[in-house]
Design a protein around this nucleic acid. Structure first.
Lengths: 191, 191
DNA sequence: GTCTATATTGAGATAGAC
DNA sequence: GTCTATCTCAATATAGAC
């Protein structure tokens, strides 16, 4: 491959910049002018890469959505209930750690939520699927609350500036630990 | 008192309506037009009660801010560490349960956050004070993460539509329970 | 692929009548 | 206390030159 290298680089930079601004000001609080300024280009240049603001929002969310969809499907395939929970928790935390602020926006930003709505499962679908697995079939109130606290707590904490300095491995370990305590899963031994 | 009755009623209705819309669309995603329409009045009528949108946002957040400030101060006065944590957790959960969606916005909405910024402690001040008490002085990484997961998880869960049908007493009990598990506090006996 | 320039809409906000 | 009417500005979005 002699070609291909930095051809669509601006598009990628744009998505990274947009995510950073979304995290700070929210999707509705972020204008295309702000994104353009941060990139050092004009609004028109932004419109060359994406036809609408909604398209930018969807493109920002898409990778994590796809991964989350895959994690849920794989977790549901596991045979034993405990394994399903373990698989989902590990996968969800891994997603949170690698995407940090993005997954936090899933739990909190109405703009990002609208973007998720037009995706594979839709926002409600995702939340229900996650809770179904974590809380089990026909769950009691305690299990449902515990599942909700886990999902929102882990997501929001992963996006918090207070833990931004933690390396991925440490954060992953701490979040899984917190999740297991909440869900009543036995403690794991670690090296 | 023969007077006083429904004089400022619109102002109160306005704050309730604004909160409901803020919870659904976020502060930035809620226009004064939307608030006016939901109230059945015009924008100008809204401006009679509040000079700016920021003033509305601050007025919506103010009661919970004051209560949270009081809870933090009282918790800090307790002598033993364990009592401080118990006091703060109980008080925080009670606040979450009574205000539901509002406290969730504290954790997630940039618009509400800006309003908190111009208050007694400011957003950073509140978060630090809460974490200091929950995680203790010079906390290790695990304690800090656990404190963050607790605060964000409880707040977001209290604001979630998924638990809206739970009565206050049940929700309070479940949230305190989840918080104690996360923070490693011993289980409580209940009637 | 990025620019200047502009159309259009809706936002926050004010003036003044009732 | 609420209305109509209006101002100003910033937002999304498009057209067309370079």
């Amino acid at each position: 491959m002699t070609t291909a290298a930095p051809a669509e680089d601006t598009r990628t930079r744009l998505l990274g910049t947009a995510l950073r601004l979304f995290a700070e000001h929210g999707v509705e609080g972020t204008s295309l002018q702000m994104i353009a300024d941060a990139l050092g280009v004009t609004k028109a240049a932004v419109y060359y890469h994406f036809k609408t603001k909604a398209e930018i929002t969807e493109a920002v969310a898409a990778p994590a959505i796809r991964e989350l969809d895959h994690i849920v499907s794989e977790a549901a395939k596991q045979r034993r209930r405990g394994t399903q929970v373990d698989y989902l928790l590990d996968g969800f935390v891994d997603l949170v750690v690698r995407h940090r602020v993005l997954v936090a926006l899933f739990s909190s930003d109405p703009g990002i939520n609208r973007a998720i709505e037009n995706s594979t499962r839709g926002m409600e679908g995702f939340k229900n699927a996650l809770i179904d697995i974590l809380a089990g079939p026909e769950p009691d109130t305690s299990s449902r609350v515990a599942a909700l606290v886990t999902l929102t707590g882990l997501a929001m904490t992963g996006g918090s500036p207070d833990i931004a300095q933690l390396d991925d491995e440490t954060l992953r370990h701490e979040l899984v630990d917190a999740g297991r305590r909440l869900l009543g899963r036995p403690r794991r031994h670690h090296d």
